[in-house]
């Protein structure tokens, strides 16, 4: 008797296998948790991988202080429910210099996220970090390994990646070196949504449409998540209007463009996604910094 597994069952089994390999073969793993839908799926898979044990590693949120309030609320709740320790890291230099997305452009992402991530990994001495990136997100991701090896200075060299055969992963590394591991490598955006529906995974409500205060800035539509802080940084308060909006992807509130939408349920969101005509990361400002090869460059510098 044979039985065909569905694509979601096979993707799930592969992700779980990856997580167990990391826990078995590395000294101190951590799961990067950004509170987005991909993180939610990754956390859910971690709970499944080690059940009935809790996942044997902490969650790490490299925070920029500019995330949406609803993200911070879900972060605490999800970690508590999983029975996992939650580490939150703020780059002290970015904090003291008041780095923000309006005044500092690309430096904001570099200091809070890229540098912040490196500092956090060094501080806790983590030798393996799970990330929720998918190969379908962006062209240079399509060529990255599931186990992506980083030098002691966190650099990524696309020309000297280790070949990855079958599901035999080489987790060996010298002291100081680390591995970024992407258990969702082979998932697509649609797979993620289908899995969220099938497994009833809680995600940030911002993915669903609702009337929210919005403003326009440099040609994009954004949510006024914290008008007081917005005014302080910009020096003026932009015109705020109520609109039915939602987000296809979640990052820093001033860097994540909203879309006008009426999709208020999971199936409506998926419906909109399937009928939509723009790709997922388009709402994110950071991919466009240096034109075409922007993400590849960021990765070589140590961005996730």
């Amino acid at each position: 008797m044979t039985r065909n597994l569905t694509h979601l069952q096979r993707l799930e089994a592969e992700s779980i296998h990856i997580m167990r390999e990391v826990v078995s073969e590395t000294a101190k793993p951590v799961m990067l948790y950004s509170v987005g839908k991909d993180s939610a799926v990754m956390l859910h898979l971690a709970k499944k991988a080690f059940y009935p044990s809790p996942p044997p590693f902490p969650l790490l949120h490299v925070d920029t202080t500019w995330k949406f309030k609803e993200m911070y609320a879900l972060r605490e709740k999800a970690a508590a429910e999983a029975g996992m320790e939650l580490l939150v890291y703020h780059n002290p230099e970015a904090e003291s210099r008041g780095i923000n997305p309006f005044d500092h452009g690309p430096l904001h992402t570099d200091m809070w996220k890229t540098q912040g991530l490196k500092q956090a990994l060094d501080k806790y001495d983590f030798d393996a970090a799970f990330g929720g990136a998918r190969r379908d997100e962006e062209k240079s991701r399509a060529k990255e390994r599931i186990f992506s090896f980083r030098t002691a200075s966190h650099g990524w060299d696309p020309k000297s990646q280790r070949p990855e055969l079958w599901n035999a992963y080489n987790t060996r590394k010298a002291k100081g070196e680390s591995i970024r591991v992407f258990p969702l490598s082979n998932w697509t955006e649609l797979d993620i949504w289908q899995y969220i529906m099938a497994e009833q995974i809680e995600i940030v409500p911002l993915y669903f449409s609702a009337k929210r205060p919005t403003y326009e800035w440099e040609g994009g539509l954004f949510m006024a998540d914290d008008p007081v802080r917005l005014e302080k940084v910009l020096g003026y308060l932009p015109e705020i209007t109520e609109r039915s909006i939602r987000f296809r992807t979640l990052g820093c509130s001033p860097l994540t463009g909203a879309v006008e939408s009426e999709a208020a349920t999971l199936s409506e969101v998926v419906q909109e996604m399937l009928l939509t005509t723009t790709s997922e990361r388009q709402g994110r400002v950071i991919d466009k910094d240096d034109g075409d090869a922007s993400m590849e460059k960021k990765k070589q510098e140590g961005y996730f």
């Binding site: 694509h7 190969r135 379908d136 062209k139 240079s140 399509a142 060529k143 696309p158 020309k159 990646q161 490598s185 082979n186 697509t188 649609l190 075409d292 090869a293 590849e296």
Partner: peptide
């Protein structure tokens, strides 16, 4: 043809994974 180096040379130099359904 994903990586910048490849696009300049007009060749594919590494395994890339693509998805469709």
């Amino acid at each position: 043809d994903g990586l910048a180096a490849e696009r300049e040379q007009g060749i594919t130099i590494d395994v890339a994974y693509r998805f469709f359904a």
